[in-house]
Design a protein around this nucleic acid. Structure first.
Length: 291
DNA sequence: TCCCAGGTAGATC
DNA sequence: GATCTACATGGG
């Protein structure tokens, strides 16, 4: 991978990026704050940063960003310093039958997302379809977050930060169509400013302790907690089991209806520290092949 | 009209 | 403990 600065000093070209597909990575269901604006071209919002990115082969064209911002923000966000060739091989060694799911979307990378936005987004996600989740996240951001600029005439907004979240009421969340999840979101916003709920701390205390803390938040159960642990806190062993994962794991390994707890234990045995990666390849594959 | 969606809390047994 | 159901909203 090599990074080049354009003459105008505002665009970046990244060449020879291995095991990465921008469409697969953004649309595999792990994140919600992005828009497709062209073929293999997207806008992405992360914290208070806005990126326009297009992929052509192994090259990434990043518009309106600097080399420094790419290095410090987007490179870690897209998890570009991890060797996914090795990860995929480790998964195949664990179970050769993952081949089909991995091959179908072999450019998926697990993003390193913002803790607060990921937590709130996955609380919203319960009993909702992905397009609805995206819409609610966007509405909350537009109403209560900072404007980050315009691309193609459309304005983009950051998800509210912890200070901005304090001013959002249960009624406000209902106006954004969060429905019965509104009080959960208020509870989450209150909890995350408490002692020991910052992402740095949660990343340090280990998977079990971090999960235990997350489960104290109303509206956060096993599944949502595992999504946050995997997508925002760096615990790549986390294995969220939702309806799709339940279905595909049952058909691959059990052949009958199986308790999600049991599926999680099985995944821990089978995939170990790579559970999160296995989960995402399987989840995306299961979803794509249902329609 | 009915059923389902990247589930969870609370009630009931 | 393990199961059952209500929960807002939108789309097929």
């Amino acid at each position: 991978m090599k990074i080049y600065e354009n003459d105008n000093g505002k665009d970046i070209i990244v060449k020879n990026v291995e095991d990465f597909n921008i469409r697969q990575t953004l649309e595999c269901g792990q994140c919600f704050h992005f828009d497709k604006i062209g073929e293999m071209e997207y806008t992405v919002v992360y914290k208070k940063y806005l990126l326009q990115i297009r992929q052509s082969g192994k090259d990434l064209y990043c518009i309106n960003t600097t080399k420094e911002e790419f290095e410090t923000v987007w490179r870690p966000y897209f998890d570009l310093d991890r060797d996914y060739g090795r990860i995929k091989q480790a998964l195949l060694d664990a179970d050769d039958r993952l081949k089909t799911a991995i091959r179908a979307n072999d450019g998926v990378r697990i993003l390193n997302q913002d803790f607060v936005e990921t937590l709130m987004s996955f609380i919203i996600s319960q009993n909702k379809q992905i397009p609805h989740i995206k819409k609610i996240v966007r509405d909350i951001s537009e109403k209560y977050g900072d404007c980050l600029g315009k691309i193609n005439g459309n304005s983009y907004y950051a998800f509210p930060d912890q200070i901005q979240l304090k001013r959002i009421t249960e009624e406000n969340y209902r106006e954004c169509k969060a429905g019965f999840r509104a009080p959960y979101l208020v509870d989450a916003a209150e909890k995350i400013i408490e002692e020991g709920f910052d992402s740095l701390h949660l990343k340090e205390i280990g998977y079990d302790n971090a999960k235990e803390k997350l489960l104290c938040i109303r509206g956060v159960g096993e599944k949502v907690a595992n999504c946050v642990l995997l997508f925002a806190l760096g615990y790549r062993n986390a294995f969220p089991v939702d309806v799709w994962m339940k279905r595909i794991m049952e058909s691959m390994y059990f052949g009958e209806s199986t308790d999600p707890k049991k599926i999680m234990e099985f995944a821990k045995e089978k995939y170990g520290g790579y559970g999160g990666y296995a989960q995402q390849y399987l989840f995306y594959y299961a979803r794509e092949n249902s329609r």
